[in-house]
Write a protein that binds this DNA or RNA. Structure first.
Lengths: 243, 243
DNA sequence: GTTATAGTTTGGTCGTACCATTGAGGACGA
DNA sequence: TCGTCCTCAATGGTACGACCAAACTATAAC
């Protein structure tokens, strides 16, 4: 397994770039299908007629892009991977994180896409998925009623719920955005779970929303979503005043 | 310039990851502001007590993420950069390309945010901006009626128009998302301008949309937007059949 | 048949040396 | 004095060689 994909030696100066591009191109053209492994570093070294360090840097870059996965040991190596949506999300999250953005803008944006996602989810997700979503919300209720309502866990479940809902829209772009937002700005949502009142309201709202989704009631679901974001804005407002 | 930000030595095994994470954290926490440069590779080598190859791999990863920019020569080094939206755009493009996501998903997403942007723009933009938008659309009409309706220029004006409109929503997130989409996937839109029929219809549609926005007629503007995306889907469909 | 052990493959790290690029400061001439 | 050219130092880019650590394989021992 090393005859066909012969890489051409790279030029001087910025050889690392060249190597990375050649390998990436080979992957994207399907010359190395997902699951297969690239030649070993030492093998590539001879094919490219270049130092091993350069090869390693190129592989590191591809790994960062999510194109390959690297395993150690014999029969290890660089395996071509299906790019996950989370890779793209991370990239967007990094961008959003570095910008100082008004929380109100974010809320506005999230509400906008949340509404669309909800409509799509009601139309496209099957009953099983809707049930699972409802059950996830019920688990939150149970946790809230329990003896130790841990804020961290609740916030994490909130994130999961959002991403799960986005997946039900059957549109990867919405998944991309939603994951990025959850990665980059989940801290804003934490305030909802820090206060006992908002915590209770939010969880109850999630239960209501998922129920309406499961019942295929788009207008009621949207109404519930509106409540959610009214709560969030309210919470952010009171927090601002106290600080 | 080397006293405060002392990095801790990294553990064995996966030191590269550790180094990259430490530097990334330092950047995100603002310890090294944009424009400033990190210590030189050899300097970092001593601070981390680690081989230079590892440092280089970590820097390469950060460069891939768009967090730093590397310059050669004296006074060169790794400079902290503002992450650009094009990074996120590329990352998403890679995902969609490798997964062969249906272009219709992208259209669906764009239509969704386009509708929200339009409503916000009508509510928030002042008359001057609305006039400018209308005039930009009129320039397209003029160009189309002219002797040499260049496809490239038309497509570029289309992109500009979209971004201009997004700006009028007064919400930077919509603006960024729109830019990311335009950067990565304008190629889909090009097909609208390749065919004479669709070209004419699309330009006319832009004129109609901008007029309704200027006239503060949200429902009619939305209706016009709906037409736009119906056209786009139609165009993609016929293109698919012919190929 | 199962377990223990040695061996092989492969990624991960270290270190040194050298090349290429670039900017700065000094030397030289007009 | 000014400007041009040259040298030099700092820094990233490449190369090579060595060794370590992990993980799979095959063989030997029980």
């Amino acid at each position: 397994m090393s005859e066909k994909p012969i890489f051409s030696p790279a030029r001087m100066g910025r050889a690392g770039e060249d190597v990375a591009l050649q390998i990436e191109a080979a992957i994207l053209e399907g010359k190395i299908p997902p699951g297969e492994s690239l030649p070993s570093e030492r093998e590539l070294q001879t094919q490219f007629e270049i130092g091993r360090g350069v090869i390693r840097e190129a592989l590191r870059a591809l790994k960062e892009k999510g194109l390959i996965e690297i395993k150690k040991g014999a029969k290890g190596g660089a395996f071509v991977k299906q790019v996950e949506v989370s890779n793209a999300s991370e990239s967007l999250a990094l961008f959003l994180k570095q910008r100082q953005v008004d929380p109100a803008c974010l809320v506005e944006f999230r509400e906008s896409i949340d509404r669309t996602i909800t409509i799509l989810a009601i139309a496209r997700a099957d009953d099983i998925e809707k049930r699972q979503l409802e059950q996830a919300a019920e688990k939150m209720v149970a946790l809230l009623d329990g003896p130790d309502p841990d804020m961290e866990i609740l916030a994490e479940m909130d994130r999961e719920l959002n991403i799960q809902l986005a997946g039900m829209s059957k549109n990867p772009i919405f998944q991309w955005i939603m994951q990025a937002i959850q990665l980059g700005f989940s801290s804003h949502d934490d305030c909802l779970y820090a206060d006992p009142y908002f915590r209770r309201e939010t969880v109850a709202n999630w239960q209501e929303t998922t129920r309406q989704i499961a019942a295929n009631e788009p207008m009621r679901a949207l109404s519930s979503i509106g409540c959610h974001y009214a709560l969030l804005l309210d919470c952010l407002q009171t927090r601002k005043e106290t600080s």
